[in-house]
């Protein structure tokens, strides 16, 4: 694998950011609220003409930005979509995007795209495949990516390892970083019965570069990772547990459906700040 390049001139990503969705773009550009950083769904900003590229440029001029993508299909057995990856690389270079995160799942196979995050069995075969794919992506981009644990509604009989062991091994073997979605851990606890406390205990903390917080929706017999509710109390508790270990890792509030006013998102961000600052204060006291 080629040497990963360190970016220069990168604006720092710290504190609590929000996932910027189209409903809030105009307001953000007009009012320029004090938000430490924004995460954009890269897939929504790939249009080659019209207003979208202009908005992307304007956003990136005003805020530090990270990219989150859903179309790389990291776990797929199809060849990597180099055209898609090339577009990502072009935009990342052009707009000085801090980093790219993707999901530990597949979204396409045989040329068909589901546009949903589909789980893969946690097997040795999947692990080898995922690691190889991340190597390819990082080689292409010339930098590390972050990979995110996904919510799931499916349990494969042939699972050979726990999800957290899979996530951990991917990060270590592929030499990539992690985006830990605390809500996804909790959703998988409710749906699949994983132990969220043990999950967080087993994470390789040094690899965690970003945390996601979101809300789920109660459905009949399961919970859906719908990103259409405030962060739930149990997820705040787990976030508190994780922040004990990684107090300086930036956090992001995701809200993708039934999107509320921007001010409501910023309230959620403030709550995350309060949790993190409490932990940082504790550490200061211990040090002093």
């Amino acid at each position: 694998m080629s040497v990963l390049l360190e970016k220069t001139g990168q604006r720092s990503i710290s504190g609590t950011g929000i996932g910027l969705r189209s409903a809030h773009v105009n307001e953000i550009l007009r009012t320029q609220p004090k938000i430490p950083w924004l995460e954009l769904l890269a897939d929504n900003h790939m249009a080659v003409g019209g207003l979208i590229p202009l908005q992307l440029e304007a956003i990136c001029e005003r805020y530090p930005v990270t990219f989150h993508s859903v179309g790389l299909s990291l776990g797929s057995v199809d060849p990597l979509d180099l055209e898609y990856l090339g577009k990502l690389k072009y935009l990342m270079r052009k707009y000085n995007i801090a980093w790219l995160s993707e999901h530990l799942c597949f979204t396409s196979v045989d040329g068909f795209h589901s546009h949903d995050l589909l789980p893969i069995p946690y097997s040795e075969e999947s692990l080898r495949h995922m690691v190889e794919r991340i190597f390819q992506v990082q080689d292409f981009l010339g930098e590390r990516i972050l990979v995110e644990n996904v919510s799931s509604y499916m349990k494969f009989a042939e699972t050979e390892m726990d999800e957290v062991d899979f996530v951990r091994e991917v990060a270590l073997q592929a030499d990539c970083d992690l985006l830990i979605d605390v809500n996804n851990i909790y959703v998988n606890h409710l749906n699949l019965g994983i132990d969220p406390v043990v999950y967080i205990q087993k994470l390789p903390y040094e690899r965690i570069k970003e945390i996601h917080l979101a809300g789920y929706q109660q459905k009949e017999g399961f919970v859906l990772d719908a990103h259409n509710h405030p962060v739930s109390d149990p997820v705040w508790d787990l976030y508190h547990q994780l922040i004990q270990q990684v107090p300086d890792v930036p956090t992001l509030i995701e809200w993708d459906n039934d999107i509320p006013p921007l001010s409501r998102l910023l309230e959620e961000a403030e709550k995350a700040n309060a949790v993190r600052e409490t932990r940082q204060d504790e550490l200061c006291h211990v040090t002093s």
Partner: peptide
Amino acid sequence: LSGMKTLTPDRQLSIY
């Protein structure tokens, strides 16, 4: 697929 307490394999697929 493995069945879970409230989600049969058929139900798991139907969610997706």
